[in-house]
């Protein structure tokens, strides 16, 4: 039998919450098509309940992830890049379908995404040295300041850039030691689901990253008002909704990342602004004396 006669095994694309791949508790799904309109898959359409489960999972995972050594987190994140590399062809195909770009462009976007993950992986054990330090206070005290992760970060991932944009907003959350509940691109969720599969097989503890596919417009308000979310990235929100989302974030003094009105060119080099945004300086004092 010729190989082309074989019937392929199509994948069911699901959510990723607490290290597991459940369907939406709402039972809803929505069709995902390529830019040219071809059917690609049915994605789960996450609900408010799924979002709350995702935040609970992210909170439960926070202690372990933030408490891991920076070296350990760096190795786990580097491992993610290794596994991404192994899935390179799959990502290229999915990015090509999702973003309707030429094969060579898709290749370049995927390669940049993998390299970006490596770049962030290397930051874990340097942040404290770059951003923290000892404080020469005027008294017999030893005082030092260390950056610590702020907690659970809610992310509305970019709508256009299905993988590179997603990696660019997600990797810094993890590199700081924060955990994430994120809503993928409405129309281009499939690379995000594959990335979740990579995370599930890369020693990233369950719950550190939680993926919701569905509509940012529906889930955004619940994410922005959730009292157990510490910081918010509204990159993927409709610019017209951002003010309202930022307003509800104020009710629990969330850190709301400053993001450009339009999606930036994700291929340009990142700075450490996204790392800084998810870090809290902690200052410790102790007396000196005999």
């Amino acid at each position: 039998m010729a190989r082309s006669d074989r019937v392929g095994v199509a994948k069911t694309y699901k959510l990723y919450i607490g290290g597991k791949f459940p369907r939406s508790e709402s039972g809803r799904s929505y069709p995902v098509t390529s830019e040219s309109g071809a059917f690609l898959a049915n994605a789960s359409q996450a609900s408010r309940k799924d979002l709350r489960d995702a935040v609970v999972a992210a909170r439960s995972a926070f202690g372990g992830w933030s408490g891991a050594t920076a070296y350990n987190r760096g190795q786990v994140l580097y491992r993610v890049a290794e596994v991404m590399e192994g899935r390179r062809d799959q990502f290229i195909a999915e990015v090509r379908d999702a973003e309707d770009v030429r094969p060579r462009t898709a290749e370049s976007l995927v390669d940049t995404a993998i390299d970006r993950w490596v770049w962030y992986a290397g930051w874990t054990d340097k942040l404290a040295a770059v951003l923290g330090g000892t404080n020469p206070v005027a008294g017999p005290y030893f005082s030092f300041t260390v950056p610590e992760p702020t907690g659970v970060v809610g992310v509305l991932a970019p709508q256009r850039s299905s993988l590179l944009g997603l990696v660019s907003v997600l990797a810094p959350v993890l590199a700081t030691g924060c955990t994430a509940a994120f809503v993928s691109s409405d129309a281009r969720p499939l690379p995000a689901i594959t990335l979740a599969e990579v995370l599930a097989t890369s020693d990233v503890p369950g719950g550190v990253v939680n993926l919701l596919t569905g509509q940012a417009a529906e889930l955004g308000p619940w994410l922005a008002s959730h009292a157990d979310v510490n910081a918010l990235d509204l990159t993927g929100a409709d610019p017209e909704h951002r003010t309202e989302l930022a307003r509800s974030a104020a009710d629990t003094v969330k850190r709301v990342l400053r993001v450009p009105e339009q999606e930036p060119d994700w291929t340009s080099s990142p700075g450490i602004g996204r790392l800084r945004a998810y870090l809290e300086d902690k200052t410790v004092w102790h007396p000196m004396g005999v």
Binding site: A138, G151, V253, D281, K282, T283, W285, H286
Partner: peptide, 27 residues
């Protein structure tokens, strides 16, 4: 989960030592 921790002392302030809060104590 607090921006300043004083160990075996309390209420020390210095311009060289960053001060500020976590969570609903501000940013």
């Amino acid at each position: 989960r607090a921006g300043v921790v004083w160990a075996n002392t309390f209420n020390r302030f210095d311009p060289a030592a960053p001060f500020g809060g976590y969570k609903e104590s501000g940013f």
